Amino acid sequence: MKLNKITWLPLMTVAVFTLAGCQDAAEPTGDSGAPVSDLPPPTMDDHAGHNHPSEGPHHGDLVELGNEEYHGEVVHNEDADALEIYILDGSATKQVAIDATELTINVSHDGKPEQFTLTAKPDEGDEAGKSSRFVSDDKELMEHLDEEGTNPRMVVKINGKSYRGEITHSHDHEGHDHGHDDHKHEDK
């Protein structure tokens, strides 16, 4: 069956009105009352809409892992004379227990790479077989974290994916003693 031009015209008209809908219907509007299509596009900034804490829940320095999927919190536990790293969620506010048994810190000392391992030491509340806390009592590691130019980086595997993050140490805190004489804060 062949359709002629006279048959197509009414069919096309019906199709146009069906697809276009009634133009007098109310358009959805945004908060400003402008039609949604006239609103500016949403911002693409990853950091928009959420705040970053300046330190972790244990008052340690934060390390971004991935595209802020996780964070590491580096804590110098002076009471235990140990370095502790806590794995935190993307907001850097809650501990996340992972199935890794260790994490690694890579540093450059005197132009040579060195590697240190922190072992899992589950924190209270971590589920069985997982840990949100990793610990080392290696004094050399703790000294390297405070030295200029060592470029410490943390490496940890979470859910089968390797994450790396640069460890930076804030020296803008009072009353913090690193336990070695070459790094005292003195007033002149």
Score class of each variant (00 low, 15 high):
residue 87 I to K: 01
residue 117 T to W: 08
residue 169 H to A: 03
residue 171 H to P: 04
residue 60 G to C: 03
residue 162 S to F: 14
residue 151 N to M: 15
residue 83 L to M: 06
residue 150 T to L: 02
residue 69 E to K: 07
residue 154 M to R: 04
residue 61 D to C: 07
residue 118 L to K: 06
residue 123 D to F: 13
residue 102 E to H: 13
residue 93 T to F: 10
residue 143 E to K: 01
residue 126 D to A: 10
residue 107 V to M: 05
residue 127 E to R: 14
residue 126 D to W: 09
residue 143 E to D: 00
residue 146 D to N: 08
residue 118 L to C: 08
residue 76 H to Y: 07
residue 82 A to R: 03
residue 161 K to Q: 12
residue 132 S to F: 05
residue 139 K to I: 04
residue 101 T to S: 14
residue 145 L to K: 01
residue 92 A to P: 12
residue 62 L to E: 05
residue 62 L to W: 06
residue 123 D to E: 12
residue 63 V to M: 11
residue 169 H to M: 09
residue 111 G to P: 03
residue 135 V to A: 01
residue 99 D to C: 11
residue 171 H to W: 08
residue 134 F to A: 08
residue 83 L to H: 00
residue 67 N to H: 08
residue 154 M to D: 05
residue 110 D to W: 14
residue 56 G to I: 01
residue 73 E to R: 05
residue 137 D to S: 06
residue 157 K to Q: 15
residue 88 L to I: 10
residue 109 H to P: 03
residue 127 E to K: 14
residue 166 E to C: 05
residue 112 K to G: 04
residue 123 D to A: 13
residue 137 D to T: 06
residue 83 L to K: 00
residue 149 G to K: 11
residue 131 S to N: 02
residue 57 P to W: 02
residue 119 T to L: 14
residue 103 L to M: 14
residue 103 L to K: 00
residue 106 N to E: 13
residue 100 A to L: 13
residue 153 R to T: 15
residue 142 M to H: 02
residue 123 D to N: 11
residue 60 G to R: 01
residue 76 H to T: 04
residue 75 V to N: 03
residue 148 E to A: 06
residue 160 G to I: 07
residue 119 T to I: 14
residue 130 K to Y: 07
residue 93 T to E: 15
residue 164 R to V: 13
residue 171 H to A: 05
residue 116 F to I: 07
residue 67 N to S: 07
residue 113 P to E: 14
residue 120 A to D: 01
residue 60 G to T: 02
residue 105 I to F: 11
residue 100 A to R: 14
residue 83 L to N: 00
residue 157 K to N: 14
residue 63 V to C: 10
residue 136 S to E: 04
residue 124 E to D: 10
residue 73 E to T: 04
residue 128 A to N: 15
residue 81 D to R: 08
residue 128 A to L: 13
residue 131 S to W: 05
residue 145 L to S: 00
residue 73 E to C: 04
residue 154 M to Y: 04
residue 121 K to G: 06
residue 94 K to Y: 09
residue 108 S to Y: 11
residue 137 D to Q: 05
residue 106 N to P: 00
residue 152 P to N: 03
residue 56 G to N: 00
residue 68 E to Q: 15
residue 122 P to D: 04
residue 97 A to K: 05
residue 168 T to R: 08
residue 92 A to T: 09
residue 114 E to L: 12
residue 89 D to A: 12
residue 84 E to A: 09
residue 114 E to C: 06
residue 116 F to R: 06
